[in-house]
């Protein structure tokens, strides 16, 4: 068991914001646009999806920009104090072609003058967890960085780009998390990140590999959660909610059972109304669940998993214990 070091406690999530564009579309629209067969339709309904969001011509950059605007309009963050901007995404069309830099462009547009700006990707939805690690390590090594932004955005350009093996309903979304040294309400506890690299081809794998993925996916989730909770400074019962991605409502009760917790431990309320917004799920769920403000002496454990085999988790804990 590894104690949480002071280094691990220095960063918290001060605030977060997100945008889901336009009005929600129904699952039936999603199924119709993709000419989904009965088996897939039945499966997605069983997985809890009911609505999703579509950007309808807006780009990922547009959604990222909108999310940052929502955060800054609250007036708590001075743009010039942002020392680090990380952009993260899953889909290839959610990032401008090099050498253009979307995070640097956001820095110019919003006045994050002099901020280090770069992109983290290729871990799919778990790229967000990698961002947390990078922010914390950079803050630890550079006392000049007080505030950092993790901006996430993705847009599904066309139903035709839905892979035939895809089993998730994806929503277009943009989100931003403001990470702050010694944030007021919470701190990020242990962070775990693991990659099963043999699944680097994502959906483009053989039936045998797909079977192996299915064999390992839930176990990998359990393992990464167990390691995170073992390193957490809070007793197990003080971790009050499990915050997974917004997909597969049938998967999480099994995880909760294996962890020895009650069914209400899982936060799955956003699967039906919002679907899976890839890297932005974390910000969306932390905001909607009120988890940026954990109750005194408590915390939540957040989980991400990616089809390319990346699994991550972290705890977000009440600041009072420090």
């Amino acid at each position: 068991m590894f104690p949480v070091s002071a280094h691990e406690r220095i960063v918290g999530i001060e605030d977060a914001a997100y945008v889901l564009p336009g009005e929600p579309h129904t699952l039936d629209e999603w199924l119709s646009a993709r000419k989904a067969n009965d088996a897939l339709s039945e499966r997605l309904r069983a997985d809890g999806y009911r609505y999703y969001y579509h950007a309808d011509g807006l780009t990922a950059a547009d959604l990222a920009r909108q999310a940052v605007r929502v955060l800054l309009d609250r007036g708590a963050l001075e743009p010039a104090s942002v020392g680090l901007v990380l952009y993260t995404h899953v889909l290839p069309a959610s990032i401008p072609a090099p050498p253009e830099s979307l995070p640097a462009r956001l820095a110019v547009e919003f006045g994050f003058r002099g901020a280090a700006c770069f992109t983290v990707s290729q871990l799919h939805c778990s790229s967000l967890i990698a961002c947390l690690t990078i922010v914390r390590d950079m803050m630890a090594s550079n006392p000049g960085i007080e505030n950092a932004l993790i901006v996430s955005s993705d847009v599904v350009l066309s139903p035709e780009l839905t892979h035939r093996n895809q089993r998730n309903v994806v929503s277009d979304a943009g989100a931003v998390m403001w990470l702050r040294r010694n944030a007021r309400r919470n701190f990020i506890g242990p962070i775990e990140l693991q990659s099963l690299t043999e699944f680097h081809d994502g959906y483009n794998i053989s039936d045998a590999m797909n079977n192996k993925f299915n064999q390992l996916v839930q176990l990998s989730t359990v393992r990464v959660l167990q390691r995170t909770l073992e390193r957490c400074s809070l007793p197990k019962e003080k971790i009050t909610r499990f915050v997974p991605p917004n997909f597969s409502s049938r998967a999480w009760p099994v995880i909760v059972r294996v962890l020895g917790r009650e069914p209400g431990f899982v936060f799955d309320e956003n699967i039906a109304p919002k679907a899976h917004a890839l890297c932005s799920d974390v910000a969306i769920n932390l905001v909607d669940g009120g988890f940026l403000d954990p109750g005194p002496g408590t915390g939540v454990v957040v989980h991400t998993r990616g089809r390319s085999g990346a699994y991550g988790a972290f705890t977000l804990q009440s600041r009072e214990l420090q």
């Binding site: 299915n214 064999q215 390992l216 996916v217 839930q218 176990l219 989730t221 359990v222 597969s248 049938r250 998967a251 099994v254 995880i255 059972r257 294996v258």
Partner: peptide
């Protein structure tokens, strides 16, 4: 694929050795 994790963890208990899934 959802509950096979319970079977694998069960194997660890029954066979008393860490399972390399």
């Amino acid at each position: 694929s959802l509950n096979v994790v319970e079977l694998i963890l069960l194997c660890e208990q029954v066979y008393r050795n860490p399972v390399n899934p």
